[in-house]
Simulated assay, not measured.
Amino acid sequence: MTRRAAELLGVVVFFLVLALGIVILRCYVRLRIKRCFGLDDGLAVTSLVFYLVAAASMIEGVRAGSFGNRWTEMEPSVLLKGLKLLFVYESTYIVATTAIKFAVGFFLLRFCVERYQRWIIYIILVILTGLTFFIFIFVLLQCRPPSWFWQQAIDSHGTCDGSGLIMAAYVHSAITGLSDAVLGLLPICIVRSLHLPFYIKCYVSVILALGSCAAFATVARMCFVHELTDPKNLFEKTGILVWSYIEVGVAIIASSAATLRPLLDEYSCYNPRWRRLHSQHKSTETSSHQQSTCMTYEEALQHNNLGMRITPISPV
């Protein structure tokens, strides 16, 4: 196993374990503690499923001797298998990315106060839908015939649109990065008008913006898109594979982490000050004790903004 292959395998296993564990915790919180499994939770699970397929394709590629190795040093059978696995990875990456972006969008919809905030999210989701269809179809049809993507290892009759692939990769990275940035800044607008102390606004903004942390990985991924100019770099130079995989993994982990607050309320004696917001308005000791035992940040937001929608968008 080469050094690049070992590095790729380490990254894949590390983020796979983290993503799998945190999504399991998310499902536990939504099903057992909150007892409301929303559309955003279903999309997070869907993204994880495709993420698992992408991880399996790369692990198998490393095991077979294709991923992380030089194209010219592979046997035709190994190269053929590697190209098939790469095709599977590209397809599942696109679906997993879109699913987790939708999960973040629907999660933020629960907390939107103003109509324009909802419209911003709707517009982003529509743009992502169109982008996904375009990129997915392009990946399927980038070679003529489509099967030549992997059969180029044993057959010289066919062509692939290499320049078009690079352009599509830049467009996809730019739009997904911009959507992450907008969804990451939107929580500031959501909590700005709330009647809450400043430190609580900062805390809630950070929690709601966690799902957009993948923007940093998206920017890093764009720095390696130029490697696609030479098809023989697809396996040896693993930069774009690593950062595209990290991009989805960070999005799954961060967006699911934003939903785990009730887990601390359930199993920890830690009671931060913001959970006692409602009790501060009570003068008697009895009512204060009753109101300070189970207030989550969602309930605190709802108490201060009775019109806020914090229930799941729709059950699945």
Rank of each mutant, 00 (worst) to 15 (best):
S156G: 13
F87T: 04
A44F: 01
M167C: 12
T129M: 10
D161G: 01
C143W: 07
R32Q: 06
L48P: 08
P187F: 11
C269H: 13
S255V: 10
F111P: 06
A251L: 03
I127F: 09
E60N: 00
R32W: 02
V95W: 09
G164M: 13
L25S: 11
Q280S: 15
F106D: 08
L228V: 07
A103R: 05
V95C: 08
I100F: 03
F224C: 04
I154S: 12
R35G: 02
V13D: 10
S268M: 12
S244C: 09
C213V: 03
R192T: 12
S163N: 15
E60A: 03
F138C: 00
Y270Q: 07
G42S: 03
R63K: 04
C294Q: 05
L85G: 02
L43K: 05
E266P: 00
P312V: 03
G38H: 02
H172D: 15
E298H: 00
V225H: 09
C27R: 00
M222K: 05
L228Y: 08
L48I: 10
G130M: 12
L86M: 08
R276F: 09
R70H: 04
P187W: 10
V219L: 13
E114W: 01
C36K: 11
I33Y: 05
R110F: 09
R26F: 02
A214K: 02
L85P: 04
S287G: 10
